[in-house]
Design a protein around this nucleic acid. Sequence first.
DNA 1: TAAATAAGTTTATATTATAAACCAAAATAA
DNA 2: TTATTTTGGTTTATAATATAAACTTATTTA
Lengths: 95, 95
Amino acid sequence: MSAFKPLDPLLHSQLRLAVMSILISVESAEFTFLKEKTESTAGNLSVQLDKLDKAEYINITKSFKGKRPLTTCAITQKGIRAFESYVENLKNYIT
Amino acid sequence: MSAFKPLDPLLHSQLRLAVMSILISVESAEFTFLKEKTESTAGNLSVQLDKLDKAEYINITKSFKGKRPLTTCAITQKGIRAFESYVENLKNYIT
DNA sequence: TAAATAAGTTTATATTATAAACCAAAATAA
DNA sequence: TTATTTTGGTTTATAATATAAACTTATTTA
């Protein structure tokens, strides 16, 4: 009946949504890859990834690629559910 | 090619999006109607309607219904275009 | 006539999104 | 070798935003 269900504020953010949109279709993605694809600044991306991580929507793994730091992100089951639910809710607003 | 086009910040807001979602499918709507449908507080709604009005996404008409004030809102052509474009851009994020 | 309700607006606050500034290590240039 | 630039980020500062609380004015209702 097309009520306006609340939109998860964690996902209702351009950059975080873009990140989740990428992560939902790959096994994992590197920080630099996400930065390129989303055309965001490193600072902004870092902050938003932290928020997704704290919400347990993604897992962040820090390691090294050769000698350089490597931050890798992957979506969690909780993240997948949240994303799918967000998309469902959003449909009521845009159709 | 599914790039992440920027999402109009004026529309990327739960309440304003809900309002536009209603207005796009009716000729006009009263303040109290929008308030009920969106389950928002009057204060919040008032502020958000002002923003949509200033952006010329909607027109606000103030009159009287009997003796009580009546605020009526209607979407503009500019609003329709903005909404449709927002929805198109958003699809890249959620599909 | 006092109290409650209606229909909003204004103002205050807490949260956010964002980029600027910063940092450490590695690679490159001089 | 030493200086400079680049990489891969994090931390911090700021400006904008969403939201509700407080307020206003007029109208009913008790």
